[in-house]
Design a protein around this nucleic acid. Structure first.
Length: 576
RNA sequence: GCACCCGUAGCUCAGCUGGAUAGAGCAUCCGCCUUCUAAGCGGAUGGCCACAGGUUCGAAUCCUGUCGGGUGCACCA
């Protein structure tokens, strides 16, 4: 059991004791009680706000209550010193042995140090990427892919059951365009000079193999045939091939989804109809006419009666159509049914979306709230755009010409680990620059490098010690840990809390920031050896202190590895 | 016009789901460094947390309004 978990337990037991002694009324809400490291380390190792939070409901004053709490805390073996400060903070300093014990925990738990059970086995469905199956993945998809994947890993590590899901938008107009584009390539494969790809179709070369496959399969049967004869067939083949391509792209990033759901299949199975019926029965869908849009009204706008979902009842500013005037489902209509389906198999849902879809968040949240009757937690994480730069200059892209920067290009140029780490160096809802030059820079400014470098340094230590001829004691005497070492352990001990925070807030970037801090602290410790040879890890004439420091360094390395694993980044044993 | 995201050091960004004196890197200034792994190290300067109210023991954090930036706004996905 890790330290913070244990102290949460101490706290609960102590409050129970105060209750039964009559010092505290029973049944107080303890949710706001925390045991955390104070911001200012000079206050101590741990601090609790218990007295301040509970004093008022208990009808007493914080200092008096703090005194009683402190009394119990002083009785704990692990606690060296307790003091009451400010408005009623209770600060604790822990014994060096407690920190040494935590270090042993890292060694004992190894890859599981940081694992948590706060998820309590809850099933969370994380839907991410869900790029339209009309071409290879480009950099616009990359950040959401990485954030979603890392978030899924963090949630799993924090004790959730996680379903990684991809929604294939294979039912809308854009896949018909894909099929038509494929038809042009099909004719081309049969020897026709098709010239330039017509405006409005997908011009990319990646459809050439699709045309070839269709030609091989069907010969010239559909060359002059009406669209109705081949559209569905071509669409299916093209979508399947696009999905293969996308899966390959994702694999380059180390991303593998558990479930791929098809919008077309969802519709074929009548899921939207079922959702509509349920909503109509609950008076949440009605037939109505929307007002003309505010702001710029499109030229072809005309009032039509459509089946509308009452999203305004859930905070949206307009009711939303679930079907088009031609009778087919809107994207939203199908998506609503899709979310309902996901909610059947999961307790909580998370969608990772590009920020350009921010405007549609409310309606889908409204739909999920309606269909699950408010029972399922549902978060939409918006991921902001990434600006691609090369030496500070924006990389020009034109989607129409088909020369967008593909994900594969970027991964091939800078590597999977650099891409993944960099995508997590900013919180998801902040815009980000991705500079090809900077992300591979070997300097302190580049967190990717800095963290890897720390890990590589640690990895090299065992080797070094051996070369220096120092005999290493694998179970060293940890009472020889000094203040600088204990400070490192204190930061290391926070890793489990960071994981929990990242999981609860759905913010995987916290892991990368923490790893940056941990690496910086390690480098700082290491650099002490520059000025003072006796502060080095390897002290040739003192095998015991060398063993102690090596043990510590290895556990730091373990934590860096655990954190990097959550981000899907491999830890390097040496820098190239 | 409306909605959403954002506004923290000169710049790029953190800020642990309300805690004590708001942090890091870069830049600037001052020292040091030829090494247990080189791609540096230590220190200093720098803030009305956009602004104004409110909530409470306590606010960068929550609420309301204002200003400023970004994005999106019928049956497109």
């Amino acid at each position: 059991m890790t330290l913070y978990v244990r102290f949460a337990g101490h706290m609960a037991a102590l409050l129970d004791a105060l209750e039964s002694a009559g010092d505290l009324p029973a049944g107080l809400n303890r949710k706001a009680v925390t045991v955390e490291p104070p911001r200012d380390p000079s206050h101590g190792d741990l601090a609790t706000n218990a007295a301040m939070v509970l004093a008022k409901p208990a009808g007493t004053n914080p200092r008096a209550l703090a005194e009683k709490v402190a009394e119990h805390l002083r009785a704990l073996d692990e606690v060296e010193e307790v003091s009451i400060a400010g408005p009623g903070f209770i600060n604790m300093r822990l014994t060096p042995g407690t920190w040494a014990g935590e270090l042993q925990q890292v060694a004992a738990l190894a890859g599981d140090y940081g694992r948590s059970d706060i998820g309590d086995g809850i099933t969370v469905n994380v839907e991410y990427v869900s790029a339209n199956p009309t071409g290879p993945m480009h950099m616009g998809h990359c950040r959401g892919a990485v954030v979603g994947d890392a978030l899924a890993s963090v949630l799993a590590y924090a004790g959730h059951k996680v379903i990684r899901e991809y929604y294939i938008n294979d039912a809308g107009g854009q896949v018909d365009v894909l099929a038509r584009s494929a038809h042009v390539r099909y004719r081309e494969a049969l020897g026709e000079a098709v010239g330039e790809i017509p405006e409005g179709l997908y011009p990319g070369d990646y459809l050439v193999p699709v045309g070839e496959k269709l030609a091989a399969e069907y010969g010239d049967k559909f060359v002059g045939a009406p669209e109705g004869d081949w559209l569905v067939l071509f669409r299916q083949t093209a979508v399947a091939m696009m999905m293969d391509m996308i899966r390959d792209d994702l694999a380059l990033l180390g991303i593998h989804h558990d479930v791929f759901s098809s919008e077309a299949e969802l519709q074929a199975a009548g899921k939207p109809e079922a959702a509509e019926k349920w909503l109509r029965d609950h008076d949440l869908v009605y037939d109505g006419v929307l007002e003309a849009p505010k702001g710029e009204v499109p030229d072809d706008w005309e009032p039509v009666e459509l089946p509308l979902f009452r999203s305004t009842k859930f905070g949206d500013d307009q009711d939303r159509p679930i079907k088009k005037s031609n009778g087919s489902w809107t994207y939203f209509g199908a998506d609503m049914a899709y979310h309902y389906q996901k909610a059947q198999n999961a307790d909580q849902l998370i969608d990772i979306w590009g920020a350009d879809h921010a405007g549609t968040v409310k309606r889908i949240q409204a739909a999920v709230a309606a269909l699950t009757e408010g029972k399922a937690r549902f978060d939409v994480k918006l991921v902001q755009m990434v600006r691609l730069l090369r030496d500070g200059e924006p990389v020009k892209m034109s989607k129409r010409a088909g020369n967008f920067v593909t994900l594969a290009d970027v991964v091939n140029e800078v590597g999977k680990d650099v891409v993944r780490f960099t995508m997590l160096t900013r919180k998801a809802d902040a815009q980000m620059d991705f500079d090809f030059a900077k992300v591979v820079e070997a300097s302190k400014d580049n967190p990717v490098f800095y963290v890897q470098y720390a890990h590589a340094r640690i990895a090299s230590l065992g080797r070094r010690a051996q070369e220096a001829g120092v005999t290493i004691n694998e179970s060293p005497d940890l009472s020889r840990l000094g203040t600088a070492e204990l400070d490192l352990i204190k930061l290391a001990a926070q890793f489990p809390r960071i994981v929990e925070g990242a999981a609860q807030n759905r913010e995987p970037h916290r892991i990368s920031f923490y790893l940056g801090d941990m690496a910086a602290a390690f480098h700082g410790w290491w650099n002490m050896g520059n000025d003072d040879p006796s502060a080095r890890v390897i002290v040739v004439n003192d095998p015991e202190i060398t063993s102690v420091r090596l043990f510590l360094a290895r556990q730091i390395g373990q934590i860096l590895r655990n954190g990097l694993a959550l981000m899907g980044v491999e830890a390097l044993s040496e820098m190239q």
